[in-house]
């Protein structure tokens, strides 16, 4: 029973969502919207599990004074402060503590993490530069042409570069994306079918 019922729910859920696609009727649209809403709601509830796991992970570290436990304490403090600010001090209004912490702490870190990509893309390019295989060279050449073609100075040095760069983006790039997209489509369809039909059930783990 512990496996049969979940498998039945998966099957029914999957089949209903496929069938609703072919039915324009209002009832079908309501089911579609309802399911999306339900998924969001369940997603909201499970954050409790997430927070629980995070808190356990860090309190364990602090309790046992494992290496770097001080940082775990910082994480816990951040969590508690932000939660209290959000739940008891004016919610998500922009001039209240919650959003102030968001604007002056979370947001700058987020933006800076994102900006690290500028350095990492350079180091990745350097790595590609050192690769000696034919396909790596193809990748590198295409990357260099498109990169130079997209900066204004590139066209000043050698004007056809912009045309070649655009052609690379519009043709070979587009073509390969299509092939990958079609492959992904089929792979995804067959995996989704295996899940719905209960052929792929490793996600259920063990048990009866």
């Amino acid at each position: 029973m512990r496996r049969q019922i979940p498998l039945a729910i998966t099957f029914i859920g999957g089949v209903v969502m496929i069938i609703q696609y072919f039915i324009p009727h209002q009832i079908s649209q309501e089911i579609y919207r309802g399911v999306l809403d339900w998924q969001m709601i369940v997603g909201g509830f499970v954050l409790v599990l997430g927070i629980g796991s995070l808190v356990t992970h860090h309190t364990e570290k602090v309790k046992r004074q494992k290496e770097g436990w001080g940082y775990s304490l910082v994480a816990l403090l951040g969590l508690v402060m932000m939660a209290i600010a959000g739940l008891f001090f004016g919610g998500m209004a922009s001039d209240k503590p919650f959003m102030q912490i968001f604007i002056y702490a979370q947001n700058p870190i987020q933006a800076t993490m994102f900006s690290l990509l500028a350095f990492f893309i350079a180091s990745a390019a350097y790595r590609a530069f050192r690769a000696r295989s034919f396909i790596a060279t193809l990748l590198l050449l295409a990357a260099i042409i498109v990169m130079i073609g997209r900066v204004p100075i590139g066209a000043k040095i050698w004007s056809p570069i912009r045309v070649i760069s655009n052609w690379l983006l519009d043709y070979p790039n587009m073509v390969a994306k299509r092939a990958i997209g079609l492959g992904v489509g089929l792979g995804m369809l067959s995996t989704a079918l295996k899940i719905i039909l209960g052929i792929e059930r490793s996600y259920l783990g063990g048990g009866k």
Binding site: V42, G43, V46, L47, V48, L49, G50, S53, S202, Y203, L204, G205, G206
Partner: peptide
């Protein structure tokens, strides 16, 4: 979090 719980089972 749900992925976490399933991963633990797996």
């Amino acid at each position: 979090p749900i992925v976490m719980t399933v991963a633990q089972e797996v």
